[in-house]
């Protein structure tokens, strides 16, 4: 018993469990009929994905995944509810019968990701992950990749100003 338990690669077990959770919850996001349930499954999916990052020793990325994606899920669901405005959320996650268009897109995406993942050359044995990755990520973000970083900040600022503008305009209309 002990010998068997010691022979298992626990990282592999964790990875396959988490991968199954990610895939199943991602499927449920699109398949359940109630949009609130879909969003809750999305949170499950994001948290499991953070777990996958943890098995790769990328703990900073895993926590970003939780903070930015899983944490923001509730903001999304609130907007979902406010925009849908239905008493009953039973049929809020809608379906249609566009089998061919949907199937085509699915095949295309699968092919593309398949081709891309086969073309990547993986190093034979990856170097050890450094103990503390935050410092290096921060240094890279503010030196080598400072321009993309600032452009992303600018983009967010533009989105923010746009949101304020939209909100203001609606208010002015309501007054007149």
């Amino acid at each position: 018993m002990m010998a068997f338990l010691n022979s298992i690669s626990w990282v592999a077990v964790a990875f396959h469990t988490l991968a199954a959770v990610v895939v199943i919850s991602a499927l449920l996001v699109v398949l359940v009929r109630n949009i609130v349930h879909a969003v809750l499954w999305l949170a499950v999916c994001f948290i499991a994905l953070a777990g996958v990052f943890l098995t790769l020793d990328a703990d900073f990325i895993a926590l970003v995944q939780i903070l930015v994606y899983a944490g923001a899920v509730c903001i999304m669901v609130v907007f979902g509810i406010m925009l849908i405005r239905r008493g009953n959320m039973g049929e809020s996650n809608q379906f249609n019968r566009q089998v061919f268009a949907g199937g085509g897109v699915a095949v295309l995406v699968t092919l593309l990701s398949g081709v891309l993942s086969f073309r990547i050359r993986y190093a034979g044995s990856p170097p050890d992950v450094p103990e503390n990755t935050v410092d290096q990520i921060a240094t890279l973000l503010l030196s080598k990749y400072v321009i993309p970083f600032e452009v992303a900040a600018l983009l967010l600022l533009v989105a923010l100003v746009g949101a304020i503008f939209l909100a203001k305009e609606v208010k002015a209309d309501a007054d007149s």
Binding site: A43, D59, F60, L63, L67, G71, E131, N132, V134
Partner: peptide
């Protein structure tokens, strides 16, 4: 944990 403070903030948001 090396990034304990960040971990706390991330999990608390849940």
């Amino acid at each position: 944990m090396n990034i304990g403070v960040f971990y706390l903030i991330a999990v608390a948001s849940l």
